[in-house]
């Protein structure tokens, strides 16, 4: 598949579930549309209950939409041949606790119809890749949450999928685990794979994604390349210094905080920054840091969610 060809297309997706006692239907997806191209890492962001997991479930044929269309590799997503090219890691994965890690991966390999030799080869490679080779023969009931997440990733990648769908992949991982997951996701991209994941951990999305989409009330709000969504220009500078009192400087700056002898102030333009630095120096102050602040994904996210 060539770079940039659409791998995942969702058009006007609608889905509602019956509420308690079937008295009313709760609408979860409300005309969601998005496209992910080959070789991209796409992050679907949004609050809990915004519809991220329902979108993923619809992609995989776990739930049926009320309306709209889902296509993977240009075909209906429920076709068996399409599923052979997909890997999926659910949120808080829970697997057969009576199986060992190795048995579980072997079972997944069987579901793809691999030969015994092929299953053994893939299972060993995957266990190595997610760092679980040493615990491969323990039953899954003895695994920690992070270890289950790793085995979950291994089963999702066992078929060397072209499209990897991950639902909240970073939840339950410690910092080292998150770093390793990030590296694996980036290595998938290097190999030309497409990754679609949902998350509410924005730092991960910012570090990984080519594009993000923010789901709100069951539809896609802001969507696009991170570079386009977030202005690359500096929004303001934050200056930390010690010494003179802020009020005595008379600078065109905003006081943010005072901690002991240190003062944190904010200025909006380069000219104001130069003037503030000059005044601090003139009064015998010591400059500690100057930090340019650009738009972050968090700013964008909060803006989208609150509008």
């Amino acid at each position: 598949m060539s770079q940039g060809e659409p791998v995942l297309e969702i058009r006007n997706l609608r889905k509602s579930y019956w509420g308690h006692l079937r008295l009313r239907r709760n609408r979860v997806l409300n005309g969601l549309s998005l496209t992910v191209s080959s070789g991209e890492i796409f992050g679907l962001l949004g609050q809990n209950g915004a519809g991220k997991t329902t979108t993923i479930k619809t992609l995989l044929g776990l739930v049926f939409p009320d309306g709209g269309a889902v296509r993977l590799f240009g075909k209906k997503s429920t076709i068996v041949a399409v599923k052979e090219r997909i890997g999926f890691l659910p949120e808080n994965p829970y697997f057969y606790e009576y199986l060992t890690g190795r048995e579980f991966l072997d079972y997944c390999g069987r579901l793809f119809g691999y030969s015994a030799y092929e299953r053994q080869r893939r299972t060993s490679a995957m266990l190595e890749r997610v760092g679980m080779a040493s615990r491969a023969d323990s039953q899954l009931r003895k695994y920690s949450k992070g270890m289950l997440q790793r085995i979950g990733l291994a089963q999702a990648l066992i078929n060397d999928p072209d499209l990897v769908i991950l639902d909240e992949p970073m939840s339950g991982l410690d910092p080292i685990g998150r770093r390793e997951f990030r590296d694996i996701i980036l290595s998938l991209k290097e190999r030309g794979k497409t990754v679609f994941f949902s998350s509410h951990i924005l730092s991960d999305a910012e570090a990984l994604c080519d594009r993000v989409g923010i789901v709100k009330d069951g539809a896609l709000g802001a969507e696009g390349k991170l570079g386009e969504l977030l202005r690359p220009t500096v929004r303001h500078w934050e200056v930390t210094y010690s010494g003179p009192e802020f009020a005595a400087l008379g600078a065109a700056a905003t006081l943010v905080a005072v901690r002991g002898t240190e003062t944190l102030a904010r200025v909006a333009t380069e000219a104001e920054l130069a003037a503030l630095l000059e005044k601090v120096r003139a009064r015998g102050g010591v400059l500690i840091s100057v930090m340019p602040r650009r738009d972050t994904l968090e700013d964008l996210y909060l803006k989208e969610i609150s509008t």
Binding site: K57, L60, G61, L62, E84, P93, Y94, C108, F112
Partner: peptide, 14 residues
């Protein structure tokens, strides 16, 4: 209940 079916349905089975 234990959601193991999520992983199964995502595999190439009917």
């Amino acid at each position: 209940e234990k959601r193991t079916i999520y992983v199964l349905i995502a595999k190439p089975i009917r």
